[in-house]
Amino acid sequence: MKTSSNKLTKRDLFRANWRWLWASQLSWNYEKMMAPGYFYSVLPFLKRWYKDDELVEMMQMQSQFFNVNAFDGNFIIGMDLAIEEKQGSKAKDTIAGLKTGLMGPLAGVGDTIFGAIIPTICGSIGAYMGLRGNPFGAFLWIIVNLIILFTRFSFLNLGYSQGAKLIDSASGKLNAITDSAILLGVTVVGALVPTVVNVKVPFVYRAGKVTLKMQSILNQIMPSLVPVLLVALVYWLLGKKHVTSTKMIWFVLILGIVLSYFHILSA
């Protein structure tokens, strides 16, 4: 049974964080996905709190299917530890439910912010500069990543200290943050099309003294018209059934060669 001496210290929380940071995805597998990582992160505490059959039972519960975003998934570990610390193995079903209930929402927020929006913004700026031979953008991204690395550690402590309270009160604000981040990402993507896709239409029409450059006509309609149309085409094709991103890469690779062969596009 639990006594007050079992109270987790800051060092304990750091330990769980540290284990999650390294192990969360290392043994990721098709069967139970991140289960080994979760199990590894909480194991020291299971060993401290339980013995024999109770330990086996809890280890089995903590190694069930689990999949979340690695950046914010440790929030769940924090809540889990807070509950188990008070209730012990009685909370087994609560924890199992909590894990499955929270992994979806946290994966949604984490994948959007850390998986899509931050790489979009940093990647756009970095690639834009990198194409011009400037390493500043690449370094900036590394600095951002280091800041995120430190921030990640606070999610577990947040889950431990506020857990349930936070989930009730902050969900609305969290949506507002996610939405604003998406808005920023979409704005940057809009700027990407004209800046990083550089192709020209080399066709020149000659009749007597008149020469018409196809590209300058297109520019008058809209700058970067060809890149915009190509993005629209790929976007549309991606909505079709059986079209995967890998197929699209092959398609564009071959499309580039074909369009270049017929002198429709040039670099």
């Binding site: 990407l192 896709v197 690779l253 580039g256």
Partner: peptide, 14 residues
């Protein structure tokens, strides 16, 4: 040319 237009795949997926 392909190298120049391949970024559109990433943009479209996004």
């Amino acid at each position: 040319v392909s190298g120049h237009i391949l970024p559109i795949v990433g943009i479209a997926i996004l």
